[in-house]
């Protein structure tokens, strides 16, 4: 199925692209996010900043937005632009931009899920060890374990990037221009919900952190 879907755009580039926008940035997001809050807390800079007239929400939003934007730009957007140029270079005609942007948006949401979860862990633990452990555990559950459980394809975020059972990944479906129904978009809705919940929990938890 994967091979068929990529016919006409270059198998190698297409395969690498899906891996690149799906799996690698998620790992990158975990690595970047694991230290953001922990480092501020353990180094004492959070204590310095938060003794000034600034709310904890402002502090955490500033950290969250700047770091997540940085991850999305460097791990999704820039490689995406390069991939788009490469795909067009090896294929006849121009690959539909809307579909390509759709895949990139999906990858951005996927990255945000792992970023938000790791960020939340950073507000709970004061050491990077447990933060990384919990975050990679979360990553493994959704990218390796959940796809093996039949009947869960529409109820987890796994299908955003990786195929699950007989269902193709949402990223590849958009990439190949398949018609998608509401049920196919459920993994995306789950992912957005996860991002919102993890982010709100991080804000809630950090309000109560003692520095």
């Amino acid at each position: 199925m994967l091979i068929a879907a990529l016919q006409g755009v270059g198998e190698e580039i297409g395969f690498l692209f899906v891996i690149f926008v799906g799996v690698s940035p998620a790992i990158g997001a975990i690595i970047v996010a694991n230290n953001i809050i922990v480092k501020e807390r353990t180094s004492g800079t959070a204590e310095w900043i938060l003794s000034k007239p600034i709310t904890r929400k402002s502090f955490i939003w500033a950290k969250y937005l700047s770091a997540s934007l940085g991850v999305i730009v460097t791990a999704v957007l820039i490689p995406g632009v390069v991939a788009y140029i490469q795909i067009n270079a090896v294929t006849d005609g121009v690959f539909p931009l809307a579909r390509f942007l759709g895949v990139l948006s999906l990858a951005a949401v996927n990255v945000l899920v792992y970023f938000a979860f790791t960020f939340l862990m950073g507000t709970i633990f004061s050491d990077t060890g447990p933060v990384l452990g919990a975050s990679f555990g979360f990553f493994m559950i959704f990218l390796s374990f959940m796809p093996l459980i039949p009947g869960t394809e529409n109820y987890t975020i796994s299908r955003l990037i990786v195929p699950q059972g007989t269902s193709e990944s949402l990223a590849l479906s958009i990439f190949t221009g398949e018609n998608l129904g509401f049920i196919d978009l459920l993994p995306l809705l789950w992912a957005i919900l996860y991002v919102i919940v993890f982010t709100m929990l991080a804000l809630y938890k950090f309000e109560r952190v003692e520095l």
């Binding site: 180094s43 004492g44 800079t45």
Partner: peptide, 9 residues
């Protein structure tokens, strides 16, 4: 406020 061991970026 000055912390006990002040830290900056």
């Amino acid at each position: 406020y000055l912390a006990q061991s002040p830290k900056f970026y």
